[in-house]
Each structure stands twice: as C-alpha cells, then as structure tokens.
Design a protein around this nucleic acid. Structure first.
Lengths: 192, 192, 192, 192
DNA sequence: TATGAATGAGCATTCATTCAT
DNA sequence: TATGAATGAATGCTCATTCAT
C-alpha cells in the first residue's frame, strides 16, 4: 500500500483506530480528523468520502495483519511449532481486529470491488501460505504424504479463525491448548 | 420464544428479514413496518425502540437456527453422517444469517445482557450438543476412546463455522467435500 | 359548572391535577385516563380533544379558586382582617395553581372565546368582590371616604398577585407580613 | 451577554421572537432557522439543543428588559416622576415579554441552574433598584422617613407587575392613571 | 493546500386521535 | 357506552459533505 505522503498515512492510521473502536456507523469524520490532528475538511482532500476512507483503512489493516502473519510464517520453525505460532498470532491479532472487520462485512454496500479483490487476493495468498507450511510438514515427515493438503490447510484456517467474529464472543482470554490441537489433528480422532 | 400474538410474530419476522438484508444501521423502522404491513407507530406498541426490536429479532433468529440444528442432531444417523449433515446445515443456515449476526456482533453497544445471555446459553448448549455426537461416535466405535473430546468438538465447531462471518466472503456456492473432511479428521494427518 | 355525571367530574379532576403538575404540553392523555381510572378512548366520549379537556379543567380550576375566595370574602371580619385573609388565601391557592394557569396563558391558541369569557367574567367579579371589601372598609370607617376605590382595589389585587407567575419564582415559603402591608397602605408612605 | 459573533446574535434574536410568539413547545427549530436566515443545522453549531437556545434567548430578553429599566432609573427625575416612568416602562416592555416569560416559567424543567441564577440575580438587583428610588424619595422629602421601605418597594413592584402574566389578560391598552396611583400610595387610603 | 462554518437530508420516536369490537 | 390497538403526522437532532477563505 502506497501513501502520497506522511499525512495520508496519519489519516489512515487514525481512521483505522477509530473504525476499529466504533465500527463504521459510529465513527465520526470529526473524530478521525481530530485523531489525525487535522481539520475535518482536509480528510476530503485525501479521500472523497467516508466510505473510501473506510475501505482504505480496511486494506491497510488487512495488509498489516497479513504482514504479521508472513513474519510468523518465515520463522525458522518446524511444522508443529509454526502452526502453534500461527494460531497464537491469529488469536492476538484478531482480538483487536474484530470490530472493524465485522463492520466491514456487515455492510456489504461499503465494499467496493477494489477492496473485495484486495481481500480475496490476500485471503487466497494466505491460504497458500498455510499450505506451504503443510507442505513443509510433509517434507519434514510430520504430515503424512497422502494427507489431503487442502483439507488440512482448511482445518488449520478454520481453527485459527475460531476466535473471529461470532465465534469470538466467549472469554477472549481463555487459554487454548494449541499444542494439543495440532497433535490431535496429526494423530486423528478415529479408531485405528 | 413467546409472542403476545400473531402480529408480534409478524413484526419480528419482518424485522429479522430487514435487519438481515441491511444490517442494523441501514434498516429503517418504516421499512420494517411496511414489510409487516402495519403502521410505523405500531412497532412501538410492541417494542420500545429499534434496539429492542433488533435484539428480539436476534434472539428469534438464534432460536430458529438452533432449533434446526436440534433436528439435525436428533436424526437417526451414525457419527460420520451426522457430522456431515451438521456441516451442511450450518453452511446453508449461515448463508442467510450472516448479515444480521455480524451486525449484532459489530455493534456491541446494541447487545443487552439479556440477549448476550441468551446467546451464550444457546452457544454453550450447542457445544454440548456436538460433544454428544462425539460421544456417540465413541460408543459407535468410530472415534477413539482416548481422543480429546473437547478438541474434536471444537474442531467440528470451527470447521462448521468456516462459512460464517469473515471466513464466508468467498464463493458461497463452492462445493465442500464434507465426507473427506470428517474422514481426514478421524484418520489424522500425521505420519504413523 | 355542570357535569353530565360523576365520571365526567372524575375526568376533569384528573385532568386538572395532571395539567397542574405537567403543564399542557407535557401532560399525556394516557396519564389523565389512568388517573381517572378509565380507558384512553373514553376521554373522547366526554371531550372531543385535549384542548377542550384542558379548557374545561381550567374553568373548573378557576371556579374552584374563586369559590374559595368567596368564602373568605363572606367571613364576618373587619376590613383589615379580611384583606389579610384574602392575601393568605391567594398566596396558598396560587402556590398550587401556577403551572396550569401559566400553561394556559402561555398558550394563547389554547384559549377559546368561551374560556376567555369565563375567565374575564370571573376576574371582573373578583375585582368587584374586592371593591366590596373596600366599600365595607369605608363604612367601617377604616378607609377614608374620599380614597380612590378603584386604585385601592387595584393595589390590593396587585399585591395579592405578587405570588403569581413570574413574581413567584422566589422562595415560596418566605413569610410576608400582610398586617404591615395593609397598615402601610392605610397610613400612606408620604410625608404629611 | 456576549455573543461569539453577529450570527449568534441573529439567531438569539430570531429565537427570541419566535419563542415570544409561539411559546416553547410551538416554536419549531426550522422556523427559527428560517427567521435567522440560516440552515437548521447551523442552529446546532451555536446551541446544542432547543432548550439551550431557549434559555439563551430568555437571558437575552431579561437583560434587555432590565437594561431598559436601568435607563429609566437613571433619569434625572424626582420620586413621583421616576416611579411613574417605571410603571410605564414595565407596562410597555412586558406587553411583549409575556409569552416567552410564561413559557419559561410554566416549563420549569426547561430552566437550568445557570438561567435561574441569572434571573434571580437580575430580579434581586431590580428590587434594590426600586429601593434606591424609595430612598431617594425619602431624601427628597416625599416619602416619610419612617415608612417601611421594603413594603413600599414591594408595593411598587407588585403594582408594576400587574400587567404581567395572569394579571395581564385584560385589555392591554386600557389607560391606567399612574399619577393617581403613586399619589394614593403616598397619601394613604386610611382615615386619619 | 488546509480549514471549519454552514448545510439539509434523513430518521427514530411520540402521542393525540380514531374506530372496530 | 367503553376500550385500547393502531395509526402517521410532526419534529428535534446528527453528521457527511461542501466551499469560501
């Protein structure tokens, strides 16, 4: 994501923060301007509408989120450890992202094609990132060669998302034993 | 959920539909009244505010959703088949529930304690419903006796929720091979 | 004032009480109906609108007020004592009448000719009632024969009204030495 | 009373006029905005609510009223003439002030502490202003030295207020012989 | 470029009144 | 006659957006 200048970045960061706290409809342009330390009118020099600013801050947030994930995925760790780190990252990152994401998805009319594309693109990359881990797991000899890579990837994604949105209403600080989860997945739940 | 009379039910159904389509903030009381075939003022004879109507329609929707699940869970099926049916139900049910649910969760200020309780209560029951399936699976001899029941339950829930919220943006009509998923979970992904 | 039946009287009394407490615009027909122990619709069997009910309760209240005054004026007392009693009555009566009276007068559009006439008629009678006291005072030899009866009457009225409306904002329980007032009026404030 | 700028003054004057004509509840923000020649939203840039605008226009009106009185009180006149001028001013000023004042006092819930204080402060000053005239009257030798100054002050106030509020319903254009009133007060109504 | 004063469309809510029972 | 469920006109207020400076 490219910004014309520092001020544009400031605005997006401010907007992101405000949208995250308040959701789309309860966030006021005035509040965002104040947070960014500029005048209300100036917002419109950079973004033609609240909607556009929202979209931009969404993309910004997504990219930031996925960047963090990239870092995790680049850690020099074995399959189990990497998946566990990934779970942890998702849990922590998403704790903060919920309001804005949900605001985003519960207001479909706010999503332009551009943002939708960016999102899908990111999500899709994300899916393949996980699959890379899975493949590393196979190479590493931890994951069976004939395991369905798509399904394992999808399971890891699903479980990592269990702290998102609706699923996330429960106690956000409850401990989850990620180790046991990944071990159970590897071992299987069925009788031999 | 009890309704004073048929009209109250009409209102809640209308509200539910409108909220589902538009989310909380874009739903107009006038639209709901029109949908219910009554005057705007009448809404306020039954619900003291938009917020309250929203909450009620949320509870209504949750109960309806969970009722459907109950039916699935009471089917006379083996473990695999029941889980598959459950996945299918969730996928179809949730396709329609997303907007309102997300509207709900992205507007925390709209959630009264009463509704939160109802929701948690339902969610919690739901968790145990799945666990009952898992236990049936154990009795049936399909699930290993020493498998971690909580984790399997949680995996089933997570995967069933993959069509919810943020996860659900992708192509909603894409086919998912639920059979393969449950088999993979049983068999495990790890090398023996 | 004549009432069709006991119920009509109940309604007017209830209305009077509610208007007195809340003023016209903050009084609700529902509240009045409740107070009267009847259904909201029934009010409209007796009065064709809120305005009409208000007017009627105004007339009722005025008549009640002037009746009390009549009683005072019929007491078997000398001039000084009667004026003092009159001051006291006005002070106490008006303490409770303000809201409704002001509501009345600050909403000229609410006053029909009928009510205005009733009021003027009462006020006018009232003026002459005071003048009767003044004349008694003259006969009694307490008031000078050549005193301007109109002016004395008017002074007594003005002073008795000092606890009304705008004048009444001050401490309503403050003691006023009515004796001294009437004596001062008799004696005059000017140097001989 | 200080105004941020000319526009604020315009608004208050417009509001004052509209409230005076219609009273609080029948005055519409749109009407006031139109009168002031501005948009409805602009009112809310200057006053956060109808109530606040009402209060401000009350204070404005009171101050204007009392300013006029000050002028009268500063005239270089003897006791009798000054009291007569004061009576005249009150009669004319109050002819226009009634609706808004009464609207004010018949809606106690509209009165904030700030306004109440302003009012009492003004009223209290006003009382002492009259008393100053009385004292001048004593010095001048027109009022007896041992006259009760409080009572005379209070009488002058009461009589000057006879054109306020409830008292004022009668024919506003009727002539009142203020000279005769003050002379009667000086001379006294009692038999020597 | 940056600003914030001005704007008005838009909406939740109230409540007097009606009318079918 | 008595009722109260139903109604919808009416209005205060919000806030994204504009535009003169």
């Amino acid at each position: 994501m490219k910004f014309k200048n520092q001020r544009e970045l400031n605005i997006v960061e401010a907007a992101y923060e405000i949208f995250q706290i308040n959701g789309y409809h309860n966030a006021k342009m005035k509040t965002i301007a104040d947070k960014a330390g500029i005048g209300k009118g100036t917002l419109y020099e950079y973004f033609k509408s609240k909607k556009e600013l929202f979209e931009t801050s969404m993309i910004f947030s997504m990219e930031k989120g996925f960047e963090g994930i990239k870092e995790v995925l680049n850690l020099d760790l074995g399959f189990r450890e990497k998946v566990i780190e990934y779970f942890k990252y998702k849990k922590n990152y998403m704790k903060n992202q919920n309001t804005i994401f949900e605001s985003f998805f519960s207001n479909r009319e706010l999503i332009s094609d551009k943002v939708r594309d960016t999102f899908f693109c990111s999500m899709s990359n994300h899916y393949y990132d996980i699959m890379v881990i899975v493949e590393e797991g196979i190479k590493e000899g931890v994951v069976r060669e004939d395991a369905d890579k798509d399904i394992l990837t999808s399971c890891i994604l699903s479980i990592s998302n269990q702290h998102l949105g609706i699923n996330s209403l429960g106690d956000k600080n409850s401990e989850v034993d990620f180790e046991k989860i990944i071990d159970s997945l590897l071992e299987g739940f069925g009788r031999r």
